[in-house]
Design a protein around this nucleic acid. Structure first.
Lengths: 147, 147
DNA sequence: CTATAATTAATTGAACTCAATTAAATTGTG
DNA sequence: CACAATTTAATTGAGTTCAATTAATTATAG
């Protein structure tokens, strides 16, 4: 086995690449179930926040999802067109826009409730591996956010 | 702490979401360095394969990167426009297209060689965490591929 | 050998992602 | 107060991602 200064450029020595590839593969797993609800993965995680918060600003939503307004605005417009949320500019601070869960959006929760079990935690991992992964990913996210 | 049948729909209970978010955050880390080379992350990992293989079919390249021709074709056209690869339809099997590394593409390797160190393994993880993550991600990828 | 099936890239269209910019509103400071 | 700096969403444009389709070629079955 020869050693080269280029070893660090080999695909098999990357940590970012399998992260990127696994993310896409796992998101793909959701598609058949999300298709039944006629929403995308990004819309799904947005609805997850809405199911918990009922009302939230675009900024706070974006911070939770690590997405900026360039992504959130079209996603929220799409969810609004489907009737699951409404958007209203705040009266106290007219720079900010609040998003509200509608009754229809609340009802969608019932249709989504089985999705996590169906996707089976996304993976073929053991409980321990799942927990390890969870902790490591949030460690990465905490670091990334802090700069 | 109350328990609800909707707990599985909470963002904090997802494994897929932090995977998706961490992937995007880490890819973002590469941008300042890749900007200097005027390539994107997808083009970068494509070049990683090219630096190793020198010549490879579009199909094999897509399998290594978990990307289909719908993604690979425009990426390869872009890399060809920059002069780093050429594409030629195979004479033995005219369905397949081979991609070749150019001298200019080989030279780009020299400019990229410091990127992995600069991104510092992508993260703030310990060596052990990095190894754990690596193994778990490839376990996910092996599972996804086999169906 | 011929018809059918499978393979390979490319194309198309919808949606996402992000950097950069813009516009409006608010906050901070002199 | 006035005005500069900051904050918040929205917009724009380039690039990615993927499902579905198409066209050309090759493999296979009868």
């Amino acid at each position: 086995m020869e050693i080269s200064k280029y070893d660090a450029l080999k695909l098999e020595n990357q940590l970012c690449f399998p992260l990127y590839a696994a993310s896409r593969e796992v998101v793909k797993r959701y598609r058949p179930y999300l298709d039944e609800l006629d929403i995308t993965y990004t819309q799904y995680i947005t609805m997850m926040v809405m199911w918990e918060e009922k009302e939230i600003t675009v900024k706070a939503l974006g911070e939770k999802l690590f997405l900026d307004s360039g992504t959130m605005t079209p996603v929220l417009k799409s969810l609004e067109a489907k009737g699951y949320v409404t958007r209203k500019r705040s009266t106290t601070d007219e720079r900010s826009v609040s998003v509200f869960l509608t009754d229809s959006g609340e009802a969608l929760k019932e249709k989504a409730v089985d999705i996590p079990a169906k996707v089976a935690g996304c993976t073929n991992l053991t409980a321990e591996e799942g927990l390890q992964l969870y902790k490591i990913l949030y460690k990465i996210l905490s670091k990334e956010g802090e700069e």
